[in-house]
Design a protein around this nucleic acid. Structure first.
Lengths: 223, 223, 223, 223
DNA sequence: AATGAATGAGTGTTCATTCAT
DNA sequence: TATGAATGAACACTCATTCAT
């Protein structure tokens, strides 16, 4: 009822945050625009001043998340002065960090019902982040750390498998099952990249033990 | 209006088939129970005699599909007398065959809107078919054809990556892009399984050149 | 809340009547489907079981009204054994009678806001009833009672003028003003049809004084 | 954003014109105040500085149109030195001219959805222009050119019939059908006014053949 | 006199589910 | 078992109007 005017981008962000919170609690499919407006402290009509439709909201939320992820990864790559091994692991960890930073936005993607939203992000991730990581691998190929024929296709496959197998809450892995699969993923990645056996695994453990960028329990990108 | 009584399982199968056809055409989200009932030639109320809800229908449809896939793979494995290489490739081909044979049920999963349904199937696939293929790999480890520490986790990751990266219509890969990623996937699989370089790729090409195994012997989904 | 099932045509008629009543009170533009459903004692969803949309309702209501008018006029013409003069006047009176018979359906057209609805009826009236009356006039031309070159165009013009000038509540004529215009209309019609001066006027007065078919205060067709 | 201040009547006229243009394109029912404001180059709030509501806008637009028509007719009558026949025909032509000159305002009334607006104009026309033409007819009665008892009622009926039957796009007359009805109308008018057979028809044809009077000298609606 | 972001009641429509027959 | 008319909560979205600036 009190009429508070705010810059468009601030309002958009508030709505996006309100929506993300509700999505996390109930899943995208169970949240109405009415609820979002209420949560954001605005009238229903105001929602439509900033978003064309629910679909529009979803798209923009997914885009914002992946953009943040790509930016994070890019920064890490540009900054890193370590070996390709560690750069790759740092980049993967940076990906995970977005979930902590952009909470609850990123976490909204976790709900079992949000497959649609999650998928948009995953696909954009494979397409946007894939090339970034491929460049790291190519560098590794020159240094002799890696040996792959088709870095882009390979890393995209790995991102896809990881996003789907480890990032999907529906599998309902126990912590142990998750750990086993994470290790298998790292070993698979080592082999796929033609890296020295154990190299990525140890680099990953080193990062975990070290500055642990992003989140302590790091391990999966999406979940 | 003609009141035809049928055994419960026959009716269920008819409804499932009617639904699959509509899902393929319009996507799950755009199909109402009204339409399904009409397509199945029954009254709306009758639908609820056989399915508790739309959610129930979706779950059972996904389950039926994956069950058929698992049965197909199992049959291939039990029958095959070839090397583990070829058995594995035959099994993967049998998996794909279900999509062709069990149309329109299997194909319904292809529609962009049906991610939810598709995912249920993919997850069940990873959980059900993964162990079957893992057993083939274990056999290969004993014969020295493969060398992996954790066959189950590894093949599950690969199934996941493949299901997501190659099975998802939203990526919109061109035929070329698809081919590149398929080859990268096979090479990645070779390495991940510790197989001789080129072995899987050539086995796969051999199968392709051969009798296109799998599709011919496929059974019916609802049987 | 009590679930009462009725034949489709009965329900349709009930809804039509409920709608007509509300339209008369508030005008078509101010009546929501919610209100109609409440008035008809059904759930909102039930409305859509019988009418595709509000537009559909309007169209069917207008059609029903005009159909009744045309049938009334046709019956009068078929039955009448009087002179063309009287037949014509009787037919015009029968038109008016529909308002009494089909109340409140016909009266709904009276509200100032219902121009759209009213117009559909008026147009259908001109097109459907025009030819019927034209046939009477043609008969009159042969008997020498009338003398017109183009009976159809002429009577359609007269129906149009009368529907608009006398049937439109927005003019807000006083009873006197209305009477003056009615008489002028009759004299104009006499002349337009080439009838003997005073003939129609007196026939009209005779009908009024006689059996007064339809409604006592007859005089205008639409209002 | 540029805050341009203008006299109230200029702004009103601009808004009226903007609205008329949109009404013509989309029909009154499909035009929002948002659109009108945008078209007029003002903010939404400014609209309400000049018009109380949409209803108000419609009423004033109809009034403006008819006022222009009445002024046109009055000017013709005052100026004309011809016979009552020709004066009458000239006046009727001047009426039609407004539709051409005051486009898009006048033409907005032509859209099928704008019946409400059209009607307001038609009614005002009958009430305002009717008396003007009646005076011409009265003059004609004195000169013996016409012979009518009640000039006002008669000409009002004729205006009504003509406005409704010939001015209503919903009838969908073909050009031929329209022509037939126009001629019938003229003959009917001759008879109704007691004019010499053929007199009006030939006067009308003469005017058509002449300088297409009316359109040239028409004034501006908002002036 | 002008702005335009904010309001919120209101709309038409859908559809999973129920239940009297 | 089967029917299908009836239900009604829920939904996305619109738009005339207000008011703080």
């Amino acid at each position: 009822m009190p009429r508070t005017s705010k810059p468009a981008d601030v309002r958009s962000a508030e709505i996006l945050n309100a929506a993300a919170g509700l999505f996390r609690q109930h899943g995208v499919g169970a949240v109405s625009i009415d609820q979002i407006a209420r949560e954001a402290g605005i009238a229903k009509g105001t929602f439509y001043l900033h978003f064309q439709s629910m679909r529009d909201l979803l798209a923009r939320m997914a885009e914002a998340t992946v953009t943040a992820m790509a930016e994070n990864v890019e920064r890490v790559i540009a900054t890193s002065e370590s070996s390709p091994y560690e750069t790759l692991v740092l980049a993967l960890a940076a990906l995970k960090a977005v979930e902590a930073d952009h909470a609850p936005l990123a976490q909204a993607l976790d709900h079992p019902d949000n497959v649609d939203l999650q998928e948009r992000a995953n696909i954009a991730l494979v397409l946007k982040v894939g090339p970034l990581l491929a460049s790291v691998i190519e560098r590794g190929c020159k240094t002799g750390d890696f040996a792959v024929e088709d870095p882009l296709s390979t890393i995209q496959f790995i991102l896809a498998g990881q996003a789907f197998l480890l990032g999907n809450p529906r599998f309902g892995w126990s912590q142990d099952e998750h750990g086993v699969r994470l290790m298998a993923t790292l070993r698979l990645t080592e082999r796929a990249l033609g890296a020295r056996p154990g190299s990525l695994v140890s680099a990953f453990l080193a990062v975990l033990a070290g500055a642990a960028p992003g989140s302590a329990e790091a391990g999966s990108l999406q979940s």
